[in-house]
Design a protein around this nucleic acid. Structure first.
Lengths: 221, 221
DNA sequence: GTCTATACATAGATAGAC
DNA sequence: GTCTATCTATGTATAGAC
């Protein structure tokens, strides 16, 4: 499967995400009409991602956000109850995006080798599709508990596959937690340094394939 | 060479770094007595690293910094002319730490295979020694030009080694820029997720060795 | 060199007209 | 639902005593 197929299969847009956020936080959002709220939220998220990728969420003022979205301060506060909560909303949503997918993919195959390929690819493709969410979640979440557990969660999926493969005699015997970590690092690289690969003109598919080759040359017997 | 030897050989302390900063910025620092200034700067840097690792540099107030260092606001402003400049000072110094070392190491060996091992190890060990500087520089520098050129610079060193090895027939033929990127990602992982490896009880030496094995299994013919 | 007290700017948040 | 005007808190930075 390449990225194009993945995108078609997954078929979730940024608007869908905003709609999800709306329903998840309907109690704290003053605007009641779905279409309006979803539209505004989408504008807001895009602006937040743009501004905070340049100077960070904390140094983005509400006035910055107002200017970039073209909405007034009052309208912004009608969409979310405060800056702190906005941060929380985005992070919670980002975490949800990662989680939703990974479990399914990991369950899809029995063969550990195929499973490993599928999980690696799915994560890279997912981070391509929702790159801004991934980047933001990583950069704006510091020593927060949620990030650490997210890290441990995705790492565990990989480690388990490696262990399973080792037991079945298809993967070499080694420090699986360490290997899993390094795979994670290379996955993360894709959304942390998106600009670099734009410059180098390397596509998601190229990246994913190279990564899988890299991992296989190390893991396979 | 293991980390212990590296540390002894390199023999640069945090105090040395602060002294360097002092001399580099003597014109903007009000305090003239070296010993006092260096002592204060060291306290300040440690506090900045601590606070900003928890909530980021931008949301660290000068009052936070005052509390953590035990120095008054006035004393802080005697050490540096403002918060913005402080950020600049730390980033410039961080960049200098990375750069100083890498060139030497890359020049030390003729054999591309040995060279690759040396460069990879040196960077991991260096980021262990000055982890806070590396972490800070990465997390607090966004779309800044300096970071991108730093990234490109270190990447070029790796790419060149890979190309050289390919020419000499010791490395496989492949997309060297991409491979270099992935090596970089795994090096970065060490200082970005230091807490994870503390939990997993994985040492720098273990990490560096695993990384080198990983890379060699892919690159060597 | 270091402190306290204070000036000044900018941030987040709200009220109330439309 | 959206706007403008405004309140209040907090932040950066400085002045001047010690």
């Amino acid at each position: 499967m390449d990225y194009k197929e993945f995108k078609k299969l997954y078929a979730v847009s940024n608007q869908d995400i905003s709609r999800e956020v709306f329903h998840r936080n309907q109690d704290t959002i003053q605007i009641k009409k779905e279409k309006t709220a979803v539209n505004n939220l989408e504008k807001i998220f895009n602006a937040v991602f743009y501004i905070s990728s340049h100077k960070g969420f904390q140094s983005m003022s509400m006035r910055d956000l107002s200017k970039k979205t073209g909405m007034s301060l009052g309208s912004l506060y009608a969409c979310f109850p405060g800056k702190k909560v906005l941060l929380d909303i985005i992070q919670t949503q980002g975490w949800s995006i990662v989680k939703k997918d990974l479990v399914q993919v990991a369950g899809a195959h029995e063969n550990p080798h195929k499973k490993l390929r599928a999980v690696i690819k799915a994560h890279v493709f997912l981070s391509e599709l929702f790159g801004q969410w991934f980047y933001f979640t990583f950069m704006e979440a510091r020593n927060i508990k949620a990030v650490k557990s997210m890290e441990e969660y995705t790492q565990k999926i990989l480690t388990d596959i490696l262990i399973q493969g080792e037991k079945q005699g298809v993967f070499k015997s080694m420090d699986n937690a360490l290997t899993a970590s390094m795979i994670k690092a290379m996955q993360q690289e894709w959304y942390l340094k998106r600009w670099k690969y734009k410059n180098l003109k390397i596509s998601v598919d190229q990246y994913a394939d190279h990564l899988i080759n890299f991992v296989e040359s190390f893991c396979l017997i």
